[in-house]
Amino acid sequence: MTIAASAAIVDATVIRHRSDTLTAWALLSPALLVLGVFGIFPIGYAFFVSLHRWRIKKEAVVGLRHYAKALGDPVWLLSLAVGFGLLLVGRIIHTRGAGTGQRLVGSAILLFGVLFGARGFVGICQTGDPRLFNGFKVTLFYACGTIPLEVVGALLLAYLLFRILTARGFFRILYFLPYITPMIATAVVFRTIFSPNPGSL
Rank of each mutant, 00 (worst) to 15 (best):
G135L: 14
L64V: 13
V151N: 07
L71D: 01
G199E: 07
A187L: 15
S79Y: 03
H66E: 15
I40M: 07
S79G: 14
S19R: 13
A167R: 14
V10S: 10
A4P: 00
G39T: 04
L174F: 14
F170W: 14
V138P: 00
R103L: 07
S19A: 11
V138A: 14
V61D: 15
P178V: 03
L201T: 09
K137C: 00
I109Y: 02
A187I: 05
K137A: 14
A31M: 12
F190R: 12
P148D: 06
T166C: 02
A68C: 00
S195Y: 08
L110K: 08
V62E: 13
F112A: 13
L156S: 09
I92T: 13
R65L: 14
G90Q: 04
A8C: 03
Y159I: 10
R65N: 13
L155T: 05
S79I: 03
L22W: 07
H52L: 06
T23R: 13
V75W: 07
G106D: 07
F41I: 15
V62D: 07
R53F: 13
T95C: 01
E150I: 15
E59S: 10
E59H: 08
F48D: 11
F133Q: 04
H17V: 13
G101R: 11
F162E: 02
V10L: 12
V34D: 01
Y175N: 12
T186W: 11
S6V: 00
L86I: 03
G120M: 01
P148N: 06
L33M: 09
V152N: 03
F141S: 10
A68E: 07
A70V: 12
I93V: 15
D73I: 06
P178M: 03
A24P: 00
F48S: 10
G153H: 09
A12M: 09
I15N: 04
D11L: 12
I43G: 05
Y159C: 07
I180L: 15
V49L: 08
S29L: 09
F162S: 08
S50C: 01
A185H: 03
M1D: 01
T186C: 06
P178I: 04
A5C: 02
V114K: 01
F121K: 01
S107I: 00
I147P: 03
A5E: 15
L149E: 08
V34T: 06
L64N: 11
V75E: 03
V138M: 11
V188K: 05
A185L: 15
F112N: 04
G101S: 11
S19P: 00
R119N: 11
V151K: 10
A26L: 09
G113A: 03
S50W: 05
V61K: 08
L80N: 02
V138I: 15
L165H: 11
F133A: 02
L35M: 08
P148M: 11
V188G: 05
A154E: 04
